[in-house]
Amino acid sequence: MALLADIASWACLIAGSLFAFIGAVGIIRLPDVFARMHGAGILDTLGMGLILAGLMIHEGFTLVTVKLVLIVVFIFFASPTTTHALARAALNGGVEPVVDGKNAPAAETSERTGGPSKT
């Protein structure tokens, strides 16, 4: 049983590190700030989550695990919020998302055009 938990913990740590690494590669490779947010999203969800899950499995069911869960919950609330704030600030600061495909509507938010154009 202890061996099984160790293996699971290992697997979570390795997978989490891998996802975090891929997320960081995404932050470097993707073309503009809005695309890079997706890379940061990988890092903030599965990368962080799996590493902390690995620690939880290692620890077993104690108050330490509760604190790890609290960290994960907090980041799951905070990360999309900061991403959203950053995206709005970038739009407001005049950075337009790079889009391909002609069907994409104008990349402005309604706060500058004065109202939603279509739904």
């Binding site: 960081a24 890079r36 947010m37 903030d44 950053l86």
Partner: peptide
């Protein structure tokens, strides 16, 4: 852009 930097620093913070 400054937004890239904020995004990256936020990611570093999570790490």
């Amino acid at each position: 852009t400054i937004y890239d930097r904020i995004l990256a620093v936020n990611a570093v913070g999570t790490l």
